[in-house]
Design a protein around this nucleic acid. Structure first.
Lengths: 147, 147
DNA sequence: GATAATAGTTATACCGCATAACTATTTAAG
DNA sequence: CTTAAATAGTTATGCGGTATAACTATTATC
């Protein structure tokens, strides 16, 4: 005889730390996305803009590699930033195949505002974390990535 | 005069802890996906199978809510698990609209193997973490999620 | 000078996820 | 009791993120 199940448990999944990580990241990602959305940016376009402001003149292929996305997918992101007058494609005299990506003053200003908005969003999510713990975690997580 | 940029930095992005989190999660997700792929499972279908083994007889709508996915997207996942003879849809006498999801012996066995495979993959990624730190982080991350 | 490699672009496809609409069945209201 | 509303499962569809292939223009290599 098959009976309905009232109380659902997820003990077998909670065993995995990756699930805690996934869900925590989902919260951060949502918070950041909403903040950036108010500034007309997506997470990936904010990342691109920040990198261009920090590394003015870099090429699309360099940016794609740094952001670990495909060159082809970067095109529309750059198009969008350029249409919004946040950056522009400048001709590289040394290589006529490539573009040098340059931020406009407007782009530089927005990068600062967006960076602070992202930091605020993260602070709201991790507010109850000990700052010392965050600084302990950062290199530990970065090591996971860079190996 | 526009010059090529040799060395690309990402200081402005490294400021955000969310990036460290994202990249670390990407690594663990990849590791888990590869392990589960060898067992013919995706992350989401492993999650579904584990929940069904732990809560035999639950309905699809209950499972969808527990996994926080749409009912409509769960259908194909259940179809797949059923086609692989890992679970089956049983009629619920108390509600002819709903199915009771029941694991097969094969499904139960695979859930155990897959769970261990996931745990191994996570251990490989977080191997250099102090176990005490993990157990400190788990409830902290879960609190981020459940608020 | 021919060949290979690189930069940017376009088109395309797949996947994860969300919404809407539908059928069948159950529950709630009048 | 009958009708309306809610629920369970399903199908179709669209959107966003991501990956691959093919193409043109240009540069580097042999």
């Amino acid at each position: 005889m098959i009976e309905p199940v009232e109380q659902i448990t997820d003990k077998s999944l909670r065993r995995h730390f990756g699930y805690s990580l996934k869900r925590a990241y989902a919260r951060v990602h949502t918070a950041i996305t909403e903040e950036l959305n108010q500034l007309g940016l997506k997470v990936i376009s904010y990342s691109a803009l920040s990198m261009i402001v920090e590394n003015p003149g870099l090429k699309q292929s360099q940016l794609a590699e740094a952001l670990m996305i495909e060159r082809s997918n970067l095109v529309v992101i750059i198009d969008d930033l350029e249409n919004k007058n946040l950056i522009y494609r400048a001709q590289l005299p040394s290589d006529r195949r490539a573009y040098a990506l340059i931020p406009t003053d407007e782009g530089k200003a927005l990068a600062v505002r967006a960076g602070d908005a992202v930091a605020d969003a993260e602070a709201a999510v991790f507010g109850h974390f000990d700052p010392a713990l965050i600084e302990q975690l950062r290199p530990a997580f970065d090591r996971i990535w860079s190996r």
